[in-house]
């Protein structure tokens, strides 16, 4: 019954949706409003206006910085949320015996894998840093770099075989909290510096050098903060 109703609904919705999308401008054509209006302005303004060769980064960090501020806030919030909302009590009787206590159970790890992971880690970290720092010129950026960095750290945590140690692993707790909040905080700083430098909140400095520096700072904040959040999420989920 439920399935049937769902199918009916989906069929109806699908018809409506398709009716709507086929009435949109044809995708891929360059004369559609998507290309002729705002995007065209971005491209026309070039990297001078956006402050970055990579227009996507320019959009993220410059034209629509406030969006990105919201974005980093969301992911930061997600971490806080996970930390705040995960089960406050320990395992209840209801969860039964099949529940495995991840904190104390050591997962047997092949020494080969463990070695390779540790070997790879510096390279991955370097790559992540590169993606962050060059994000304004090449494909990439803070988020991408942050994800790579985070993935590396998760990888390390998974295969380091040190699952029983929950705290004071990578960073001191005080510092860790600051780094996790790096995303919103660097944007907050951007807001204020923008006000100082150019009179607008969330604006980049006009001077190319400072602009580049600020962008790099932002990318680093997003990236490192993002990585910290990802790791935090991972740990919070693992610890339950």
């Amino acid at each position: 019954m439920r399935k049937f109703l769902a199918l009916v609904l989906i069929a109806a919705l699908g018809a409506v949706l398709i009716a709507a999308v086929v009435n949109l401008p044809e995708p891929g054509t360059t004369d559609s409003p998507v290309h002729t209006h705002v995007s065209a302005g971005y491209i026309k303004g070039g990297h001078e206006a956006g402050g970055a060769d990579n227009l996507v980064t320019a959009v993220l960090l410059n034209y629509r910085a406030i969006d990105t501020f919201g974005e980093v806030t969301v992911i930061f919030t997600a971490l806080i949320a996970v930390l705040a909302a995960t089960s406050l009590a320990g395992p209840t009787e209801r969860s039964g015996t099949q529940n495995i206590d991840l904190k104390t159970t050591r997962v047997p790890v092949s020494p080969v894998v463990s070695f390779v992971v540790r070997l790879m880690a510096p390279f991955i970290a370097t790559f992540a840093l590169f993606v962050m720092l060059k994000g304004h010129e090449l494909p990439g950026g803070g988020f991408q770099g942050g994800v790579v960095l985070g993935a590396m750290l998760i990888l390390l945590a998974l295969f380091s075989g040190r699952t029983d140690k929950t705290d004071d692993e990578e960073l001191p707790p005080g510092l860790r909290n600051w780094i996790r909040a790096a995303g919103p905080l660097v944007f907050g700083a951007l807001g204020l510096t923008g006000l100082v430098f150019s009179g607008w909140l969330f604006s980049l400095p006009d001077h190319p050098f400072w602009r580049e520096m600020v962008m790099i700072g932002l990318e680093l904040g997003i990236g490192i903060g993002g990585a910290a959040v990802l790791v935090g999420l991972f740990r919070a989920l693992r610890e339950g």
Partner: peptide, 9 residues
């Protein structure tokens, strides 16, 4: 925000 006039910003 950011000094970009709409619709760019």
């Amino acid at each position: 925000a950011g000094g970009w006039p709409p619709p760019y910003g």
